[in-house]
Design a protein around this nucleic acid. Structure first.
Length: 829
DNA sequence: AGCACGCCGACT
DNA sequence: GTCGGCGTGCTC
């Protein structure tokens, strides 16, 4: 049998299956989806079997055998192999990159090299004179010694070892080792068969009281038990258990243990809540789609507080009763304990939870619950879309507009698009849920389906019928003119004061990263920039250094201007740290919890801070985007947005959309329970439609206006985008390479008859913009150029990109510009 | 990506 | 005359 293997080398040259002979003893175990170790170019690498073939057709001489099988059960299923193929096509990435994205990182094995004494090596030391005695002692360990350990320990013998390997006195073996050890636990098994307890005890010496006790316990329990637990419950030492095992009375085996991060936590069972008529309608539509064998994508457009989650829960329940499985995708930041509790409370042990706060090992264990069929529901961030279920009935993507569904690293996939593809494979339903849907999804759902049925599921009312909180817009230009130079308007100042007096809570949003201040000299205009990147350095208060966001370069904050010597150095741009300081000044004694990247980097910090706030240990929760999502605290009656313009002013075509979404989301945090809420938005652009629409909670108005702009400037959803970024150390190499790429692409598009303005009447049109210098023109000492491609219609853009980038890859070494292709980019700036 | 094979400068 | 520099090219 021949295995077609994709090896773990992420390069275009090796991006194809290689053939390997399957040794007889592996034949029953190797399947498409198996992970194997294979010899490849003089070393052993990890790879995935994507198919099997008959031996006869292959040139046996050129084929090497599979070296090892790495898992008892193939980590991938056939549908995922096909999905990886689709991803590598669509996103222009290697096959292996797509496959690796689907398995937990614990399964990213790397080769380890071992050296052992060769069997043929003569025994007498004279013949091994090349090797010193101290080395020989090490090498005598069975199983051999890791090469890097050996060389680390005896660097001066590197030459001797190399020679001995060459001469055949030492042998080298390679095998794949998983990055995360699978935790092994010693488990004690009761005696097999129904042997007579009397006789078992009789075989114990009279003095072995402890062993007798242990055996009695094991027999009574009559179940396999982890050794540690046995010792804890029955007392005794590992030695006495070992003695029992030696007498053959019990068996000890090594078993893989499964970590359960939620072990020992009780989840209160929750019952389905009665649905409102609106919810009931939507539920019915989803349930119908789950039942139907046809794949369907639906957009659940529900205002904040409309009870989307309850609809999800009941739809999942319906899916499970049909014997199918469900995947729930949630933005990382919303995967809070409350969220997990809701799902665990309804479905108990049938849920696996995957999020980035789990260790590699824990995530692997959750993944195995899915793979083994122990659970039917997977809830997690982006990568949970690859949950290895065999019969998917429903995929839910909550807060579908969130940009975190797009992976920023290769493979640059969008979980929404992958979900739609996977649903097609399984005949499943996809439900996209949001109060502020992305324009792309909204446009797609509004197109009437072939059956004439709309895929839009509106839920315009809040469950408890309460109104959305009133939103006040404060024009900060007016504040400045009336002499208020503080970052707090008088309205917001007063509103905060009232909350403090009443003992209510406030949420303050500054939608700008915590440390986004830059440093400039007021005398000469000098500003600190990174020597390796074309970007200003940002000031880190905590460490007192200026740091580059892109390459990590750090330098001390200068006391005087390095350019003109002036001491008028000022910090510009307000970060959350500054607001925190200001709050303390304005409201002495105020208790503030700051939540941003700096304060939540520690494990569980996020959870801890929210719990503190929920326990009313603070008056104000101040933070970045992360305070806008999904929080639900009854005593929050004020939401303040300090500067709504920060995200509005980004030079990206989605700036308006982002701002509207953010403001709408954060406004939904106020007055969710019996206390009425209020929202205050400070801005320098009060007339901007994104802000005005957010004030009225008016998605339709925002949509209409935003669509006009998108249409006018030809942006999604009126076309699709690709961002191609090229980089090289020398601008003189990069510029012509980038031109060549763009030229090549234009030529291809022209030959196919696609080239032309997007507003032309043709169904298939594309435009190639650039190359131009990237917004960050230099990063990590490499210059960067970019091309933006806009296209409409069913164009195989990926193939064109591959073809156009080929000459770049084949350029002579040293003149090869690096190229990165981002399909449907999140930002083009 | 790595490792091997292959052609030109500082050493025994 | 050899050791080794790292520049191309292939890996079942």
């Amino acid at each position: 049998m021949i295995a077609k293997v994709i090896v773990d080398v992420p390069s275009r040259q090796t991006d194809r299956p290689f053939d390997y002979a399957v040794p007889r003893d592996m034949e029953p175990w190797i399947e498409p989806g198996s992970r194997v170790g294979v010899p490849f170019g003089g070393r052993v690498l990890q790879g995935f079997v994507i198919g099997l073939a008959d031996e006869s057709e292959f040139d046996a001489k050129r084929i090497k055998p599979v070296a090892e099988l790495l898992d008892p059960v193939p980590p991938l299923l056939p549908d995922l192999i096909e999905l990886a193929r689709w991803m590598s096509d669509k996103y222009v990435c290697t096959w292996i990159a797509a496959l690796q994205a689907m398995v937990p990182s614990a399964l990213k094995g790397k080769a380890e090299r071992f050296v052992t004494l060769s069997n043929e090596a003569p025994d007498d030391n004279g013949a091994l004179s090349g090797l010193p005695e101290e080395l020989l002692q090490w090498l005598n360990k069975d199983g051999g010694v890791k090469l890097d350990v050996l060389l680390g320990r005896f660097p001066h013998y590197a030459g001797a070892v190399k020679q001995a390997l060459k001469a055949g006195m030492l042998e080298e073996k390679t095998s794949i080792h998983d990055r995360v050890g699978i935790r092994k636990v010693l488990t004690v098994y009761p005696p097999e068969g129904s042997s007579d307890p009397e006789r078992l005890f009789a075989s114990l010496p009279a003095r072995a009281g402890k062993q007798r006790e242990l055996l009695a316990y094991i027999l009574r329990n009559n179940e396999p038990i982890p050794l540690q637990r046995l010792l804890a419950e029955a007392g005794g030492s590992a030695g006495s258990v070992r003695a029992l095992a030696d007498k053959g009375l019990v068996t000890i085996r090594e078993e893989e243990s499964k970590r359960d991060p939620y072990a020992g936590r009780e989840f209160k069972r929750t019952e389905p809540l009665p649905l409102t008529p609106g919810q009931q309608d939507v539920y019915g539509r989803i349930a119908g789609a789950v039942e139907s064998p046809e794949p369907k994508v639906m957009l659940l457009h529900g205002v904040t507080g409309s009870g989307k989650t309850e609809v999800y829960l009941q739809a999942i329940h319906h899916c499970l009763t049909l014997g199918k499985q469900a995947i729930v995708l949630v933005p990382e930041i919303s995967l809070t304990p409350q969220m997990v509790e809701r799902f665990k409370g309804r479905f108990g042990d049938a849920v696996a939870v995957m999020h980035s706060r789990l260790s590699h090992g824990e995530r692997y264990d959750e993944w195995r619950k899915i793979r083994s069929g122990a659970v039917q529901v997977a809830i997690g961030a982006r990568s949970a879309v690859f949950a290895p279920f065999e019969r998917i009935g429903l995929i839910i993507i909550d807060e579908e507009h969130e940009s975190s569904y797009k992976q920023e690293e290769t493979p640059k996939y969008h979980a929404r698009d992958v979900a739609v593809k996977r649903a097609k494979q399984h005949g499943a339903a996809v439900v996209l849920g949001s109060a502020t849907p992305s324009l792309e999804s909204y446009a797609a759902a509004s197109r009437t389906s072939p059956g004439g049925e709309s895929m839009l599921l509106p839920m315009p009312e809040r469950v408890h019928g309460g109104p959305l909180p009133p939103v006040r817009i404060v024009d900060m230009r007016g504040e400045l003119m009336s002499g208020n130079r503080s970052m707090f308007s008088r309205s917001l100042h007063q509103a905060l004061e009232e909350r403090l007096a009443r003992g209510e809570q406030s949420v303050l949003l500054l939608n700008r990263r915590g440390y986004s201040t830059f440093v400039m000299c007021r005398s000469c205009g000098y500003s600190a920039t990174c020597p390796h990147c074309d970007i200003s350095l940002t000031y880190h208060r905590k460490s007192g250094v200026l740091r580059c966001h892109y390459c990590g370069h750090a330098e001390p904050l200068p006391a005087s201007c390095p350019s003109c010597g002036s001491e008028h150095i000022r910090y510009f741009g307000t970060g959350t740290q500054r607001v925190e300081e200001e709050l303390a000044k304005l409201f002495p004694g105020i208790r503030v919890i700051r939540m941003d990247v700096d304060t939540t980097s520690e494990k569980n910090a996020h959870e801890k801070l929210l719990k503190q706030f929920g326990d009313r240990e603070a008056d104000v929760l101040l933070g970045t985007q992360m305070v806008a999502k999904g929080l639900d605290f009854p005593y929050v009656t004020l939401v303040g947005v300090i500067a709504a313009d920060t995200s509005l002013n980004l030079p990206d075509f989605r700036a308006g959309e982002r701002t509207f979404q953010l403001l709408t989301q954060v406004a939904g945090r106020a007055g969710r329970h019996h206390l009425p809420g209020e929202v205050i938005i400070q801005t320098y652009a009060p007339e901007h439609y994104a802000i005005a629409a957010a004030q009225r909670h008016d998605y339709a108005a925002f949509l209409a206006e935003e669509l006009k702009h998108r249409s006018l400037l030809a942006y999604p959803p009126y076309c699709r985008l690709v961002l191609v970024t090229m980089s090289h150390e020398q601008i003189g190499v990069l510029a012509p390479a980038a031109e060549q790429f763009a030229g090549e692409l234009r030529a291809l598009a022209g030959a196919a008859g696609y080239l032309g303005p997007l507003d032309g009447g043709r169904p298939k049109t594309m435009e190639v913009l650039g190359p131009t210098a990237s917004p960050i023109a230099k990063m990590k000492d490499r210059y960067r150029f970019q091309c933006v491609i806009k296209y409409r219609g069913n164009i195989d853009i990926s193939s064109m990109l591959r073809a156009a980038s080929k000459p770049l890859m084949e350029a002579p070494a040293g003149r090869q510009a690096q190229i990165s292709i981002d399909i449907d980019p999140q930002m083009i700036l």
